[in-house]
């Protein structure tokens, strides 16, 4: 299981590097979407690994909330570019 989590961390580093290096705001948003999904999946894996119900619930809530935040931000950015 530890190997799987380490591989997940490596997969998480790719969008973080992308967000750091790319200048276009929409590419950064894509990286943010990727990071949001990946972190909540990692929380779920850790919760199952430790058999901790509480962390699992938090992981599921973060999974849905992080995406909602992303959509709000995307709409604000769109309005920004139109004006």
């Amino acid at each position: 299981m530890n190997v799987i989590l380490i591989a997940m961390i490596l997969a998480l580093l790719i969008p973080i590097y992308e967000a750091c290096q790319d200048e276009d705001i929409w590419q950064k948003m894509l990286a943010f979407a990727s990071v949001a999904t990946k972190t909540s999946m990692m929380i779920l894996v850790v919760s199952v690994l430790r058999d901790d119900w509480m962390i699992g619930v938090v992981g599921v809530i973060i999974l849905s909330v992080g995406n909602a935040a992303l959509m709000l931000l995307a709409h604000i950015l769109k309005r920004l570019n139109q004006l």
Binding site: M29, L30, A33, L63, S64, N67, A68, A74, L77, Q82
Partner: peptide, 22 residues
Amino acid sequence: ALISLAIWNTVLGYVLAYCSSR
């Protein structure tokens, strides 16, 4: 988790594509 993943990610894909292509 499975349901919210399937629904949210599809919706998010549409929203991001709409916002960025506009």
